[in-house]
Write a protein that binds this DNA or RNA. Structure first.
Length: 713
DNA sequence: ATCAGAGGTGTTTTT
DNA sequence: CACCTCTGAT
């Protein structure tokens, strides 16, 4: 049926048929990674005779899993749906649903989503009377999230006391509340699964022998405990195949450990390695730029892509005056290509930070070009959706206090925080559910409040009369009068959008019933917590997204924007070689998204923090070989600091060579903060301020230039 | 209990 | 700039 030899090149073929030993596939951008994975699974099923449900395939996003399943269906038909395919998180969740009792989870446990988790941290900080201004809840959340991704947490340790203000207390209190509410958070999915494997040899054995073959996509972005997960299932000599590209590792900040891929052959026995370097995506020009850029990185296994498509395209760099002209330029080019017949869905505008999307949005709107901002607020994060779901969440889990207070107060019923806090206390002290607390405390409420509660409890009772998730969704929409509430409180335009979303929620519930006929409300709610904005379809519209979100995607025409020092590479990374390398990899990912046309832009100044700041061209521009901007698009005569094209230890900025009107990159000294590097400047004359990164004194600070001494080297 | 307005604060990137 | 939280007025 499938002719593997004909449909794959030599390297891909090897990657597909070597199924005995641990296999590392180093697959550069556009070298047919997805093809390898799908064909390998097909090969395992069709040629080796492995049962599809004994194959585990881990992807980076839910969307990638869907895409892969779709492609696999084309190769093996309905068997595709039996393969275990999904992200580490979704697979872990599935495992925990079945065996979570081994680590003390109650069968119907819920999953708290990111926003609610943040809300929970705020509560905790408040209860512990910690000054949230001095110690923002967000920091605790990040630190604890980070900690939950370490082997120590898997081993049940508690964060090092003293490492951050009262963090162990916060951790305990936060965890206590989660436990009380029978909730787990995002990070728990993975760490609890691994803990379970360690605690229960029986469970581990069950999954380990069930999965005869494990495949992992985007292996370069796995972290320490994801590695543990794989090791526990596959053993040291197991049948595991990981596919990745060390040059595309861009999640170090999230704990991804590039050593997982660099040292794969140390972690497993008898490892075979296949390198895929033949690129079938981009023009030779694009590949050449990508290669020269990434050569500047020291931490890599080292490989060079070769272009295999006979195709011509544009590859240009344009330096624009400011962020508006950058957006103008991009918009103009998009129109041009659209006129030439390139469809909108085949074009993408990429940037380093989400905040940059605005200018493009404004301009594209003006001209009427359809676009989609990927990575904005995810569907399930929208206010109206969260409001409605909070009823279902509370109905599903009457211990969930975040959902309780949200649903109880939207639309408002004359019950406020004071009363809610009382109910919480009561429930917590008596170890009863919140709904039980309400019932017992009922006589103590004022008449008005009693009316509110009666209505609220009525909705919950109403929900109990349904079995189908979609009916419940509909029930909430009807009984809360949510549409009227929206119409009464929002502008007509806004209300229309929200109501559309509400209908979409109902559709999602119907779709859920179709894809998982056995699925419960709990499952549906968990799936909403796992869903992210990158999972949503984009249609025939121009994609606006961060380079991180663009990972794994490709477009005919790509605009890579904002190539300025301080923005891309971003501030903090400039002085840290390792981080700078990650930024460079990110740039590499950006370049290699383009198939035919690539435009790389920068702006000489842009508004940041509300004032206009001038910044220097990105190091990466010179490294890609864009030594000078095109004359026609550089009205400014300003000179920028230049760097040796092949500096190894990237770039101690050379202050001396900078011109007088751009101080970016210069080394400075401040009486109090010590040595630093100027990132950008704003203002004129005596009020001129410089944004300076102080390595040893708290990072980025804004200082009036007069207080700085410029240091010559 | 709710809302509007002031004022302070901080920004990467996301499963 | 844009968000968020706190405050004081209804």
């Amino acid at each position: 049926m499938i002719n593997y030899k004909n449909e794959l090149n030599q390297g891909q073929y090897e990657a597909v048929v070597r199924t005995e030993n641990p296999l590392l596939v180093l697959a550069g951008a556009g070298t047919g990674k997805t093809r390898v994975i799908t064909y390998r699974i097909a090969y395992l099923i069709n040629e080796i005779g492995i049962e599809p449900e004994r194959i585990l395939a881990v992807t980076f996003t839910n969307k990638a899993a869907e895409e892969m399943k779709h492609r696999l269906r084309g190769l093996v038909g309905t068997a595709a749906s039996s393969v275990w395919m999904g992200t580490f998180h979704s697979i872990s969740l599935r495992i925990l649903r079945r065996d979570g009792s081994a680590v003390g989870l109650k069968p119907g446990f819920g999953v708290i989503d990111q926003d609610d988790r943040m809300a929970l941290f705020r509560e905790v900080i408040k209860t512990l009377k910690i000054d949230h201004k001095k110690y923002p809840p967000k920091q605790y959340m990040n630190k604890i999230s980070w900690f939950k991704n370490t082997p120590q947490y898997v081993e049940r340790q508690i964060p090092d006391a003293g490492s951050f203000h009262r963090i162990d207390e916060v951790f305990r209190e936060y965890q206590k509340r989660l436990d009380e509410q029978f909730l787990i958070d995002f990070d728990d999915m993975l760490s609890l699964t691994i803990r379970m494997f360690e605690v229960s040899e029986e469970v581990r054995q069950y999954y380990s022998s069930m999965f005869e073959h494990i495949l992992v996509d985007e292996y370069q972005d796995t972290n320490a405990i994801q590695f543990m997960f794989l090791r526990l299932l596959a053993g040291r000599s197991g049948r595991i195949c990981v596919v990745g590209d060390d040059d595309q590792s861009i999640y170090g900040w999230r704990g991804a450990d590039i050593r997982n891929i660099l040292e794969f052959d140390k972690h497993f026995e008898d490892v075979e390695v296949v390198k895929l370097t033949e690129n079938y995506r981009s023009t030779a020009d694009i590949i050449a730029r990508a290669n020269t850029l990434i050569k500047n990185n020291a931490m890599r296994r080292g490989k060079e892509l070769t272009a295999h498509l006979e195709m011509e395209g544009a590859l240009e760099h344009h330096s624009l005056l400011n962020e508006t002209s950058e957006a103008d330029f991009v918009t103009k080019m998009i129109s041009k290509y659209a006129d030439e017949g390139v469809s909108y869905g085949d074009m993408a505008v990429l940037y380093r930070t989400n905040a940059q999307s605005r200018n493009f949005e404004v301009n594209l709107n003006k001209v009427g070009i359809p676009y989609k901002v990927v990575g904005g607020t995810a569907f399930y994060q929208r206010r109206e959706i969260k409001d409605l779901l909070s009823y279902l969440r509370f109905f599903d889990n009457s211990f969930d206090s975040v959902s309780f207070s949200r649903s109880l107060t939207t639309p408002s019923r004359g019950i406020g925080t004071t009363t809610i806090d009382k109910i919480r206390d009561f429930a917590s002290k008596n170890a009863v559910s919140l709904i039980e607390a309400v019932k017992q405390m009922f006589p103590s409420f004022s008449r008005n409040q009693q009316e509110g509660f009666r209505q609220y409890v009525g909705i919950m009772d109403h929900l109990a009369s349904f079995t189908k998730v979609s009916d419940m969704v509909n029930g909430v929409i009807e009984r809360t009068g949510y549409k009227d509430y929206v119409l009464a409180n929002e502008s007509e335009e806004e209300a229309k959008k929200r109501i559309e979303n509400i209908h979409e929620l109902y559709n999602a519930a119907v779709a859920f019933e179709e894809t998982s006929p056995e699925g419960t409300l709990t499952d549906f709610l968990a799936s909403t917590s796992l869903s992210t904005s990158t999972d949503e379809a984009s249609g025939d519209r121009v994609s606006l997204m961060t380079i991180h979100s663009a990972k794994g995607l490709e477009f005919d025409t790509v605009f890579l924007t904002g190539l300025e020092n301080g923005l891309f590479p971003l501030y903090g990374s400039i002085d840290e070689p390792e981080q700078l390398e990650e930024e460079r990899r990110l740039c590499y990912v950006g370049i290699t998204r383009a198939k035919r046309n690539l435009y790389v832009t920068c702006a000489e100044s842009r508004i940041m923090y509300g004032n206009r700041t001038v910044s220097a061209r990105s190091y990466f521009l010179e490294e890609m070989g864009f030594a000078k901007a095109k004359a026609s698009f550089t009205p400014s005569t300003r000179q920028f600091d230049r760097f040796q094209p092949k500096a190894r230890k990237p770039m101690q900025p050379q202050g001396k060579e900078a011109s007088s009107n751009s101080k970016a990159g210069k080394k400075v000294r401040h009486e109090k903060f010590g040595d630093g590097i100027v990132i950008s400047t704003s203002g004129e004359g005596a009020s001129e301020k410089a944004e300076v990164f102080f390595k040893n004194a708290g990072g980025l600070k804004k200082i009036v230039t007069a207080f700085l001494t410029f240091v010559d080297e």
